[in-house]
């Protein structure tokens, strides 16, 4: 089993769950950053996505049966949109390309997102996996490109490819532009629309990816927590000041929010204006899992997660 993006919060969580799976043999991971917590039996390779040769060398030397590709950069999560798009593209091309060279490869799972359906006018309220892909944000186009690359690799090499389309992932350590925005003291919302959106907790997302690897997923599956919430309702849950905005106000709000450390990328802006829901029926039917937390619970936890806890050193050395 080879896992890309093991240095991210979600990747580390997936790795720790895979380590406990009895059917997983050797486990190796790759990322530009080290894992966020101690992993017991995962061999970690710290390689930057632009080091194609080293990535190919490492992946082909390991020769995995299953490749789980979680190495994606959401815009304004850990990198600005332009850098995130480049890093994601580099990682996808190198890792999926390297996997195609592995003779033992049987199965590929890629992390995707429900942003892939897009929210153009007339788009379905709750698209399921059979809905045509029509991304309308840069993040949506990025995950569509990953799925496309993985599907091409699958066709060429003759392996099954599954895509786990995650709702916006929130967790105590997950860098999420949506989560950051909702935790601001004042939360903007569209007064004319205030549409509903759904999210998923990081652990449920990781469970979905692990289940996809276990069942040999060969199709896309939406991984979305049940329920929905609007930005205004989320702000009320978090006892935040909700700021009603119309049209040009958003330009100012976006600039201010960026200034205060919570940039609003286009896919988050789209979710706040047009909503972001998806059918999660296949999660239970195909992956055999039910999300442990509903969207409301995830949002409630979002406001209960501590931001920074400062612990004084036990021994003062300076």
């Amino acid at each position: 089993m080879f896992l890309s993006g093991v240095g991210g919060e979600l990747g580390t969580l997936v790795a720790s769950l895979l380590e406990d799976e009895p059917w997983v043999g050797a486990l190796a991971g790759i990322d530009a950053d080290p894992p966020r917590r101690r992993l017991q039996r995962t061999t970690f390779h710290r390689i930057h996505p632009d080091e194609h040769d080293r990535i190919v060398e490492t992946v082909t030397a390991f020769d995995p049966h299953v490749l789980v590709h979680v190495g994606v950069w959401e815009p304004d999560a850990r990198a600005n949109p332009a850098a995130a798009a480049i890093l994601t593209d580099q990682a996808a091309t190198s890792i999926l390309g390297a996997a195609a060279e592995c003779p033992a490869l049987e199965h590929v799972v890629v992390r995707s997102g429900i942003e892939i359906y897009g929210r153009e006018r007339g788009a379905l309220t709750r698209p399921d996996e059979s809905t045509p892909v029509f991304p309308t944000s840069s993040w949506g186009r990025t995950v569509a490109a990953i799925e496309h690359t993985a599907a091409r690799v699958g066709e060429r090499v003759g392996v099954t490819v599954g895509a786990v389309r995650l709702a916006p992932v929130l967790g105590p350590h997950v860098p999420s532009p949506l989560g950051r925005l909702l935790r601001m003291p004042a939360v903007p919302f569209s007064v004319l629309a205030d549409p509903p959106f759904a999210v998923i907790e990081d652990r449920d997302a990781a469970l979905a990816i692990v289940a996809a690897a276990r069942v040999g997923l060969d199709r896309p599956v939406n991984a979305v927590a049940p329920g929905a919430i609007t930005a205004w309702q989320a702000a009320r849950h978090g006892k935040r000041l909700s700021v009603p905005l119309v049209g040009p106000d958003w330009r100012v709000a976006r600039a201010l929010s960026h200034l205060f450390g919570a940039p609003i990328p286009d896919h988050v802006s789209e979710a706040l204006h047009r909503g972001r829901l998806a059918d999660n029926g296949a999660m239970r039917d195909v992956l055999g899992i039910v999300p442990e937390a509903t969207t409301i619970e995830v949002i409630d936890r979002l406001y209960n997660w501590p931001s920074i806890i400062r612990r004084p050193a036990r021994v003062q050395v300076a």
Partner: peptide, 26 residues
């Protein structure tokens, strides 16, 4: 930063195994 309280990391407590998943999928 202290790790906030999380649920048990027991893998996939709600995961249901489908040994004959493939054949019964449709």
């Amino acid at each position: 930063m202290a790790p906030p309280s999380r649920r048990s990391s027991t893998p996939a407590s709600k995961v249901v195994n489908f040994p004959v998943r493939r054949s019964a999928e449709i």
